[in-house]
């Protein structure tokens, strides 16, 4: 059986038609299951905990990057290696694009085709992330693999990437057991600014930020520093489309 978890923001009236359309399409495809809606008194975590008792075949997040991240963390916290799906609705859905899911219509077809990939996840402290963890360069020091430290000398960002949603670098593969560290430093020029880029692959990083800036994971959730970042190999089974970028 499929369990569909609808994010809280989908209770807004403007999504009514979209949700009705999704439900109809899922019924047409014979994929109808149990629909659970997150509410003020019902968190995604509690829904997952409750529904996993019935050993469902698949749990599908209906929402955005944030919904998917919460679902991944909730299922893995229960130590359950269940298959996960995604139906993107609304903004902030870059992960769906990387998975080869353009919109909610295509998402239903992708669920019906049920093409499953086992992918690695990044783990920052106790929280998993699928795409990347980002932090400012300012006063940030990284210890890579316990062997050396890297310190950017100017302003910019540090991106620790598992899945590159922009598909700009073919070396970034969420199926390998490596994280890619991309350090971008902005250099001010007379006419225009330039960006110096450093690129390192590793499987363990400790990051400390002296001014207590936080990481942003999966473009939506904040995680405090200091943080230990590792990679969990083939931790997630996820349903993907043919046009996925990996």
């Amino acid at each position: 059986m499929h369990i569909y978890i609808f994010d809280y923001f989908l209770n807004k009236k403007k999504y009514e038609a979209t949700i009705a359309k999704i439900e109809t399409r899922l019924t047409d495809l014979g994929l109808n299951g149990k629909n659970c809606h997150i509410g003020p008194l019902r968190s995604l975590k509690s829904i997952v905990k409750e529904e996993l008792r019935n050993t469902p075949k698949t749990i599908v997040a209906v929402g955005n990057n944030n919904t998917l991240n919460q679902l991944i963390n909730a299922t893995l916290e229960e130590d359950n290696n269940i298959t996960i799906g995604l139906i993107p609705v609304g903004d902030n859905n870059s992960i769906a694009g990387a998975l080869g899911i353009a919109d909610e219509d295509q998402a239903c077809n992708v669920l019906a085709a049920r093409l499953i990939e086992a992918v690695s996840l990044g783990k920052i402290n106790d929280q998993y992330f699928f795409t990347s963890a980002q932090i400012t360069n300012q006063e940030t020091i990284m210890e890579i693999g316990g062997k050396y430290t890297i310190e950017p000398t100017g302003p910019g960002t540090i991106n620790i990437i598992n899945l590159d949603v922009s598909a700009s670098n073919p070396k970034i593969d969420p199926k390998d057991a490596l994280l890619e560290v991309l350090v971008s430093v902005v250099k001010k020029g007379v006419l225009k600014n330039t960006v110096d880029v450093s690129f390192i692959q590793t499987n363990r990083i400790i990051v400390n930020n002296l001014i207590h800036k936080n990481f942003i994971i999966d473009e939506s959730i904040e995680v405090r520093t200091p943080a230990e970042i590792t990679v969990a190999k083939e931790k997630l089974k996820i349903i993907v489309g043919k046009e996925r970028i990996f």
Partner: peptide, 26 residues
């Protein structure tokens, strides 16, 4: 096919051991 790039605006301290091609500008 460089696997590691140390850009000009980065300072590295320690034993830097790589597996593939390395470019160092920092």
């Amino acid at each position: 096919e460089a696997e590691t790039i140390i850009g000009p605006s980065v300072k590295v301290e320690g034993d830097f051991i790589g597996q593939g091609n390395i470019i160092v500008d920092g």
